[in-house]
Simulated scan of single mutants.
Amino acid sequence: MLSTAAPPVDRRRASAWARFLMSLLHRHPARIALLRQAVELNMDETVESVRQQYPSLRGKDDPESFEEYIANSRGRLQDGVLALLLTRIVDSEKVGNALLAMTWAVGAAQRTRFRFLTSDRPLMTSNGLGHRESLLVLPISPQSYFIAARRTETIETFRLNKPDDVIAGVNHAICLQAEEFVIGHDEAQKRFVDNRLGGSPLHPVVRDSRGSIFWENPHKFDPWIP
């Protein structure tokens, strides 16, 4: 994508990229903690659910039977069930098809004052993938980003905005939804990060029950203020 300035077009690579995006929605510290809690609270039901799905979830190094898998866990059953559950969620056909049905693009913000940040929760998302304003934005380099949207107009809005404003808006989201750390190309945005990381009095954060933050107005970017 960086060399061609375009998203993957062949089905195999597009599916792999969609799966990677789905993994970013779930494999961050807060989401993993919630899934682990759910496994512990509903262990009997979870085990039975995974048992039914085991043939499709089994990795190449896993035993053929679920019973043997449990026997080999040696006290690590919850970790094993959590790993299988996460795999099942990331491989969701419904979510994957919704992502593949969106319009994809790669954008660049060059000759800007600052560069894109990333974090332990780098995917900027709207509330769901099925409504008119649905979108996902992911920085893929200090100067480039991937975007998926239901409407091409959403993508054009990003392209027509001033590059500095695009970086400001995306970095604002990246910092607010980060849990533990933000990564930058250099330390030029340290104050910007410090005033936003995880939320602050100036920039409060409202998360849903899963710990996620949704961005309902993706075109209204936050200005470069402390």
Rank of each mutant, 00 (worst) to 15 (best):
L2C: 03
S3M: 00
P7C: 01
P7Y: 01
P8A: 13
F20R: 05
L21Q: 08
M22V: 01
L24W: 12
R27P: 01
A30I: 12
A33V: 03
A33C: 07
T46C: 05
E48M: 13
V50A: 03
Q52H: 14
Y54K: 10
L57N: 07
G59S: 11
G59D: 14
D62F: 09
E64H: 00
E64K: 02
E64V: 06
F66T: 06
F66V: 04
N72G: 10
R74L: 15
R74A: 15
R76W: 05
L77P: 11
L84N: 02
L85D: 01
S92T: 12
K94M: 07
L99C: 15
M102P: 04
A109Y: 01
A109C: 10
T112Y: 00
L123C: 13
L123V: 06
T125E: 13
N127I: 01
N127M: 04
L129K: 04
E133H: 12
L135Y: 11
L136G: 08
L138N: 14
S144H: 12
F146D: 07
I147A: 14
A148D: 05
T154K: 01
E156H: 14
T157M: 04
N161R: 05
K162L: 15
D164H: 00
D165W: 08
L176R: 15
F181N: 00
I183L: 15
D186F: 06
D186P: 08
Q189D: 05
K190T: 11
V206S: 11
R210I: 07
G211W: 12
E216N: 12
P218Y: 15
K220L: 10
